[in-house]
Structures are given as C-alpha cells and as structure tokens.
Amino acid sequence: MSKAKRLLDILVFATTKRVFTAQEIADEFNISIRTVHRYIIDLSEMGLPIYAEQGRNGGYKVLTGKMLPPILFTEEEAVSVFFAFQSLRYYRNLPFDTEINSVTHKLYTYLKHDAKEKVDALRSYIAFWNPKRTINTPLLKEIVKLTIENRNVRFCYESKSGIKEKYVHPIGVYAHDGLWYLPAHDFQREKIILYRVDRIVSILSTEECEEKFINLEEWFSSYNISNPIQLKVELTKEGVRQCKSVPYLQELVSIHEDGAGEINASIDKNEINFITPVFYRLGKDAKVLEPRELRDSIRAHAKEILNLYTD
C-alpha cells in the first residue's frame, strides 16, 4: 500500500475517533509504533490539529471535530481553486485571508510537478485586477461575522460630516473596485443605507435580532425607485464607451447607428449626488438634458474646480 493511501486511511481513523493511542493505530493498520509516530508527524504538518497527551494513559487527541473528511481533487480541480483565489489577490483585506493562505499552501505542496507549473504560470500571466488599495479595513472580519450571525450593530462611522454613531442591521458584505461595502438597514432612517466597511471606526455594541430582513442576494435583485426622476443624456461615441464601462449605467445606454447614443431612463432622485462626478468626468462626451437638478449639480461642481485656479 502506498504511503499516501496509508496516510489517508489514518487521517479518517484519527478524525473519527479523535482520541486514540499509537498502539491502536499500529494494531489497526498492522504497522510498527515507530511508523505510527512518523505518520502522525506527517499528518500534523499537513494541518491536522493533533497533540500528544503525556503520561501512563497518554496518546493522541484531535483538537477539533470540525475537520472535513479527505477530499480528493483532480489536477484540473486543484488548479481551478488557484484560479479562483487569483481574483482576491489585489484586496488588502479579506474576511478569511489566513485560511486562504493555508488552503493554497496545502494544495500546492501536494501537486505534481506539471500541475505546479500550471499554477506558477497562472500566477504570472493571469490576474483579476482590482485597484491596489492602501486603505486598511481592520473590522472586516468582525463585520462579516456579525452579519452572518444576524445581529444588530452599533458602530462609529466616519463620513464627510464627521464621526457619527449608527445603529443598523447588516444584510451582507460585498467587494467592488478594491473596496468592501456594507448594505444595512438603518433603524434611524428606516431604509437600507450603503456603508464603506473601512470607514467603520469602532463597534460599540451588538445585540441579537429576531426581525426578518432581506439578505444581500435579495437586495441586489430588488432595486426600487422610491423618488423617480427622468435622466436624459446625449452621448458621443466616447461617451457611449465610457458609460458602457460603468455598471449602473451600461444597461441604460441606447446606441445609434453612427455609434453615438443616449440615456433616457428613470432613476431615483437620491442618486443625483452619486452620479454627478461620473457625468462631470465625461465632460463634452456627455450632455445632460434632464433633470435640472443634475445639470445644476454638475455646474456647481465645475465652479468649485474653476475657483481653485482663478488668478
């Protein structure tokens, strides 16, 4: 029997019994005590949380019952795991970064030479690029944990107007453009507000929640316009290209035969401040016809910039 097969059998035996002696393994698999000790060291290096209990009645104990049974990956499946992890490499903070490093290390260690070459090429030539943010998000893990536990949260949040206390129920956490966002039901404003996780300064308290709220998946698919207003924009060819690169605008763009285009759709009035920088940045490639509030907002933005450069 190969060593790999023997290790796999002992791993199943150890995680099932959790408490055992070297003699029990020796008897079960008809091997010497010395060989048992070598295999235990190998399993420990592979990540099995096991320790030796000293004394007359000593033996071995697996520290947790949360170990998964052995999973056999094909070479292509293992490489695909590395491919998936590539999409996360440009984020400064991840909810489970230590675990990801552990998984990749274990997988890479036991890959065959040709599979390791595939993974090395994958790392060097393929990337899911996101802006490399220098902003730290120290409370990301804690926020994710509280969200999964369905708890209400009080935290201090830093915004343009200063640091304020918020009382919310998180409905999920998602990453976009290198940053982490927290949609949450704000109890004071009685609606879902989108927060940046890196701007959460401290968590003041948490409490159990018995109410039923929508989850992140439901929120993504249930966009409601509570205060509709018409958005009309004329776009040059370059304006079309730029708007097609903006996720929340791309589906609103209609393209003409000459390549130019337009936007004629209903949006929520509350989004005006959010989309003003987008159309200001497009300059002459996007002429906003309606609403008047957006035109005024772009004009005010331009005046602020112009005032910085007056002699």
Rank of each mutant, 00 (worst) to 15 (best):
F128G: 15
W180F: 15
L107Q: 03
H113S: 15
S102W: 03
D120M: 05
V103L: 15
K164D: 10
D97H: 07
L94S: 05
S222G: 02
V153I: 15
G172Y: 00
E99A: 09
S102Q: 14
G178V: 03
K106T: 10
L194Q: 07
E208L: 12
K166W: 00
S87F: 12
P95F: 01
E142H: 03
I214Q: 07
E208W: 03
I126E: 08
D177N: 09
S124C: 10
R199T: 01
R189T: 11
I200P: 00
E210P: 05
P138W: 01
H176G: 03
R92L: 13
Q188Y: 05
I135T: 14
S124V: 00
F187E: 11
E217S: 14
S202T: 08
G178N: 09
I192W: 02
E218M: 12
R123H: 10
H185I: 05
Q86C: 13
C156H: 12
F96D: 15
L179R: 13
A121V: 03
N152H: 09
W180D: 01
E190N: 12
D114Q: 08
S221D: 09
N130S: 10
E218W: 00
V144N: 09
S159W: 02
E210N: 12
R154E: 14
P95S: 02
K106N: 13
R154V: 11
I203R: 02
A175C: 05
L111S: 10
E142T: 14
L182V: 00
N93Q: 06
E207Q: 12
T104Q: 13
C156G: 10
E218H: 03
S124H: 04
K191N: 13
P170N: 07
K191P: 02
E211D: 14
V197Q: 02
K212Q: 12
E217I: 02
I100F: 07
E142R: 14
L122Y: 03
S205M: 06
Q86F: 04
S222H: 04
I214C: 11
S205G: 11
L88A: 15
K118Y: 01
F96I: 15
Y108D: 02
Y195N: 07
L194M: 13
E217K: 12
Y91E: 01
R154M: 08
